[in-house]
Amino acid sequence: MNAEFLEALRDLEKEKGISVDVLLEAIEAALLSAYKRNFGSLQNARVHIDRETGDFRVYTQRVVKEQVEDQRQEITVEDAQKINPSYEPGDIVETEVTPRNFGRIAAQTAKQVVVQRIREAERNIIFEEFANREGDIVTGVVQRLEQKNVFIELGKTEAILAPSEQMPGEEYRQGGRIKVYIIEVRKTTKGPQILVSRTHPGLLKRLFELEVPELLEGIVELKGVAREAGARSKLAVFSKDDNVDPVGACVGPKGMRVQNIVNELNGEKIDIIKWNPDPSKFVASSLSPAKVVAVEIWEEEKVARVIVPDYQLSLAIGKEGQNARLAAKLTGWKIDIKSESQMREIYPDEYGVLFESEYE
């Protein structure tokens, strides 16, 4: 090692942001290990690299003692003072023991350390970049499929789309571009592991934020998302400006905004509902496209009984209960759906008085 090597390290510091001092300390530690490994030394030792010239030296370290038990670790006061009269018991005496043929080992070790540190630095940069993007959307290219996992290229790294995060029936073709939602970034010995999703409700939320300027501007607020990926989703939106229709803003001119998202999600149906602070009205809206006659609310139990016309019952419940299930997720209320004829059986005399339609 020499001054040219130090200059290369300084260039590396500018390019990769790796401190020269950190590199040199790592090289010194690696050289010490190499010295002990190759020369079988049981002595305490230290490696020093001159920060100006790049020259390196290996020194043994012995403790000054009145009585010596291990000559490899200790030195008598008399012998120490022959080297320097100022030595006293407890001091450390260093003696240079740099092997003649240590240069080749040193050069090889230094190269390995630098390469390893560069790799670690690049991994840290990637980790920091993506750790700050958890909960965000990225666009990547499908690289390969292994054991049902889809590996997606994201520039200098790749993300993993696990089977549980894949949309039912969606095909992933090598080379195809795809939008995914970053759910977690883990630090591992092999570099950052980026876990992404196509099923997370956050993907739907971020897609709407990209398509609807009013959401990013804060005029329209997304109050809730309920999603069964690949099948159906419901969103509750609210406008802080009375002149802006939140549902219309999300649907877009001629339905283009919502249609772009439907296309991205391969035809997933999306219901956009106007949020209402009145829980009965919000629950009624959440069952869209079904029409609701009345809603009974039990605040403490967080239960809502919804009454619908007989011909709307199956629509309100949805296929395999999907519409009702999504409405419950969206509102946070347990929803019990009854038809008008079922309610007449429960309240044969009072039904017409108790449940006049509020939502027509």
Rank of each mutant, 00 (worst) to 15 (best):
E15Y: 02
Q193T: 05
E4I: 08
P163A: 08
K111M: 12
E66K: 12
L315A: 08
L31G: 09
S86N: 09
K302V: 04
G252I: 04
L207F: 07
I270M: 04
L330M: 09
G135R: 05
A34F: 10
K205Y: 03
V63T: 15
Y172M: 02
A131C: 00
A324G: 14
A29Y: 06
W298I: 04
F130E: 11
L216R: 01
T76E: 12
K187V: 01
K281L: 08
E13P: 00
Q112E: 15
R104K: 13
A304K: 05
K240Y: 10
L207W: 02
L326C: 10
N149P: 03
R72T: 09
E345K: 12
G332I: 11
V262W: 10
E146I: 08
E350N: 07
I49F: 14
I194A: 09
E268P: 07
V180L: 07
Y172I: 03
N38T: 09
V115W: 07
G17W: 13
R100S: 15
I126L: 12
E78V: 02
N276A: 04
A249K: 01
V68P: 07
R37W: 03
N124I: 00
G90N: 11
F102I: 09
S164I: 13
S19P: 04
T95C: 06
E358P: 01
E228P: 01
A26G: 08
E28I: 08
C250T: 00
S19G: 05
S280A: 15
D50K: 05
V68E: 12
Y35N: 13
Q193F: 00
A110T: 14
R232K: 15
Q71I: 07
G224D: 06
W275A: 01
L215Y: 01
I75N: 04
E15S: 07
R72A: 07
R119I: 05
S164E: 15
P309V: 01
V22N: 08
S285Q: 14
P99Y: 12
R227W: 11
I337R: 12
Q71Y: 11
A328V: 08
L287R: 10
D336Q: 14
L204I: 06
V114N: 11
F282T: 06
K234M: 06
K254A: 09
A226R: 07
Y347M: 05
K269T: 09
E153T: 07
I183S: 13
K302M: 14
I137A: 06
A45W: 03
V293H: 07
Q43R: 10
K190A: 00
E15L: 14
G40I: 01
S341D: 14
N149C: 01
I27D: 10
V303M: 11
N44L: 08
N260S: 15
I152Q: 06
R206N: 03
I261R: 03
G169R: 13
P89E: 09
A30Q: 03
V247F: 03
A327C: 05
N276E: 15
S339K: 03
E94D: 10
S86Y: 02
F238L: 02
G17C: 08
K205C: 00
P168K: 12
L235C: 06
A3E: 15
V353W: 02
R123P: 01
